[in-house]
Amino acid sequence: MSDPIQKEIVRSTPVGPIQIRSFCTPDEIQAYRFDEQFGTHAQYKSIYTKRETLEKHAAKKDANVVLALTENEQIVGFGVFSHPEADERWMELGPGVMMEVKAVEVSRSLRSWRIAGDLVRLMLTHPKIEQMIAYMVGYSWTWDLDGSGMTAQQYRNMLIRLFNPHGFIELQTNEPNICLKPENLFMARIGGEVSDRLRQDFKWLRFGVSP
């Protein structure tokens, strides 16, 4: 991928303006501080608890790590969009065809300020977005039900509302990890330039069958 254009938006919050920035590089990330709230809570553990994990993702081909930053250059939210791991089912469509929204997380103190929506929007401003199938998996055991005060079903519906405006739709799959719990969620967005053949192959792949 040629160097992607980094985009920035600013959202006003009670703690001051939050800058949301796409395609952050490992070097950039290294210069920021990680909010202490991305850690282990009584009933919830953040998806990533170390800044280094974000750096590793940012170094991957095509990846888009989006950060939400305070004026003091503290990371208060992050989104990670990158290719699936080599051993995952979704690699079977071929290299580069699918990309996963691996994480969207906002510090507990800054939720309800639409930062998650901004993170998703900037993650998907990817130069190859129309040539790929973007997807997200919601495993209910990773959700911060305690911090959000929601039930698993309410949280699931919140995720659907978060991703729907960006062209993601809920789809069925028999992928074993997703099927472990009925409240788990699989959503995907098929780019406008994805061929009919790939669309059909994606359908077979979702159900683990081959014609």
Binding site: I160, I169, E170, L171, Q172, K203, W204, R206, F207, V209, S210, P211
Partner: peptide
Amino acid sequence: MRYPKECVLKECV
């Protein structure tokens, strides 16, 4: 919930 939902059964039905 979103309907209709497509699903693929055994033997690609």
